[in-house]
Simulated scan of single mutants.
Amino acid sequence: MTAVRIDALAREFGELVSTVDSEDAVALVERALDDGADPMAVLVDVIAAAQRRVGFRWQRGEWSVAQEHAATAVAVSATEAVTRRARLTPAARGRVVLACAEREWHAMPAMIIGGALRGAGWSVTMLGAATPAARLTQYLHDLGPDVTAVSCSMPGALPATRRIIEASTADGIPVLAGGPAFGTDSARADALGATAWAPTAREVAQVIAGLPPVVPAVPPLPAGPANEQASLELDHEALAATLLRQWSPGPDWLAADIKDVVDLALHCVGAALLTGDARPLPDTAAWVSDLLTSRGADNTTAGELGEQLAHVLREYPLARNLVTAHWA
């Protein structure tokens, strides 16, 4: 299928996602595959592209959470259709256990990776969203996979990703990391001890084929940042409660929505501490600013959150310094 026809397919699929027409969306994808469309192009350039637009519409206040969830269900059904087709390829290359870290509820990226790997001849066991490290350990013992793949979209899930990396490498199993939370290079994945990082779904099969069969357990992280991140995690609810008393984007906001923003900000600090990469802070500040202003909040509100965040973290010097220097 040519790029032009993929573009046309993407437009038509996007319209069906907008109207929450799951049946026709699945039929469209299946017809495209019957006509010779590249399954990877369907996964990445059609389904994933539509899902990104769904996220943008929610972030900009154009869609409600209910609309976002309904549209995502259409994308999930279409991804499952591609994966069913991918299962026609013999699984002769080995077994991959694919998980999302705790606090990572976005399973769609992992589903797309799973479909790509299955089409490349890997047997894939998908553990789903928010997989606890203890649950992963049990699966590793039961299945004995060749590789653990971990998907992470939100920076706040990076500390939990470290626990998955520890659990997997303790059994000698290499870990492939990927997802938007890792940014645009391997720095965060390397810092957390992942065996390798893949920037997009297209590179996953190639990267995973080059992993070593056995790896050593990851060494401990630097004690200072790791200890402070652990303390932040233990004190999270108390810190969040203080922030909620001191900061609000305005009276029209639901308490649950404000809590989500506060939780995100605190988890982002922990991710920056643990990876030694401060970029999640300005990235999150920009995301929060866009979220708030698109819903009518003053354009200074995100900056005020950063100021209050630095204030409540005054007993956590490494974290406070990161916020003061990098929240913008």
Rank of each mutant, 00 (worst) to 15 (best):
T293M: 12
L254C: 07
P249D: 03
G306W: 04
L98F: 07
R60Y: 07
A66N: 05
A49F: 12
G144I: 08
E304N: 15
A149R: 11
D34R: 10
V44E: 06
I47M: 11
L234K: 07
A325L: 14
G114S: 11
A3H: 10
W197V: 00
V17Q: 03
E203Q: 15
P282V: 12
H326M: 05
A325R: 15
V96S: 11
A81K: 01
A49T: 10
A285G: 14
Y316N: 13
G156N: 00
A99T: 09
E315K: 11
S248K: 09
A92R: 15
V218P: 00
D290C: 12
E315L: 05
T169H: 07
A241I: 06
Q51G: 11
L244H: 10
L309N: 02
G128H: 06
A86K: 06
D24M: 09
A285H: 12
A160F: 10
Y316S: 14
G296A: 09
G128K: 05
A255I: 07
P39F: 04
T293Q: 15
G172D: 06
A92L: 13
V17M: 05
G224T: 08
L33A: 07
D24T: 13
V54P: 03
L211H: 01
L266F: 02
M108E: 13
R11K: 09
A181R: 00
V29R: 06
L117F: 11
D290E: 14
V26Q: 01
L88Y: 09
V312P: 03
